[in-house]
């Protein structure tokens, strides 16, 4: 479902003497249906960069990034928007929402975006929030006021609301207690069983061992760091 071929990327800092910082070259990887692949490598090696290139919020200088049938590296904004709505989910470490919107609606939104009914979307949101132990009294409040762990779980609920065929996970178990961590890992297993292709960054080594089928060390693609 994901096929990354010979991608490269550099940043040009126009306001700092037009310094050019190459961050990736020769990036290669693939994730099949029902497979979970972990990105590894030292901090700064480019794990998040690669994830963002696949999601389309970093531009790719060269190479191909196929998600399903779409080459994200060359796709128009509209094509990427459609891809994100229907095919490609992303659970980031940070929750970014309109302040004031109720948690329940934040979680239900991806389902409503693909045209599911209000009631159906909310039912699924309730189910996920309950599963992730977000107390019901918080559902009508905006998650912007929640603790880090709670925000993280709302983010996960939102990412799993719609059964995306491809899922990017950025540290899904960070800052979670044992119970919630187990729930999240169960959700990931479920998605895998459904045939979802998952690419993730897991610093939590035990979790990585438990759910990932393979590891890809991005250090290989880091200019100047490759062995």
């Amino acid at each position: 479902m994901i096929r990354v071929e010979n991608v490269s990327k550099s940043f040009t800092l126009h306001n700092q003497g037009a310094a050019v910082i190459p961050v990736m070259s020769g990036g290669e990887l693939s994730v099949a249906k029902g497979e979970c692949v972990a990105l590894t490598g030292a901090s700064g090696a480019g794990k998040s960069t690669l994830m963002r290139m696949i999601y389309g919020n970093y531009l790719t200088a060269a190479g191909r990034i196929m998600v399903g049938d779409l080459d994200v590296a060359r796709a128009s904004p509209r094509e990427i928007l459609m891809l994100r709505r229907h095919v490609l989910g992303y659970v980031s470490q940070f929750l970014r929402v309109v302040p004031r919107v109720a948690t329940l609606d934040v979680v239900a939104e991806p389902l409503r975006a693909v045209g599911r009914s209000e009631a159906e979307a909310r039912d699924r949101a309730r189910e996920l929030l309950a599963q992730l132990n977000i107390p019901e009294r918080l559902w009508q409040l905006s998650p912007t006021t929640f603790s880090g762990g709670e925000q993280q779980r709302v983010n996960i609920a939102r990412g799993f609301a719609h059964p995306y065929p491809v899922l990017l996970l950025d540290e899904p178990t960070a800052s979670l207690d044992a119970t919630n961590r187990a729930t999240v890992l169960a959700l990931i297993e479920e998605a895998k069983a459904r045939g979802t292709a998952i690419l993730g960054i897991f610093h939590d080594e035990a979790a990585r061992k438990q759910i990932c089928d393979r590891e890809v060390d991005v250090t290989r693609f880091t200019p100047g760091m490759a062995a």
Partner: peptide, 10 residues
């Protein structure tokens, strides 16, 4: 011009 998060993030 481009996707909003792409323009803002990269």
């Amino acid at each position: 011009s481009g996707l909003t998060d792409q323009v803002l993030d990269d």
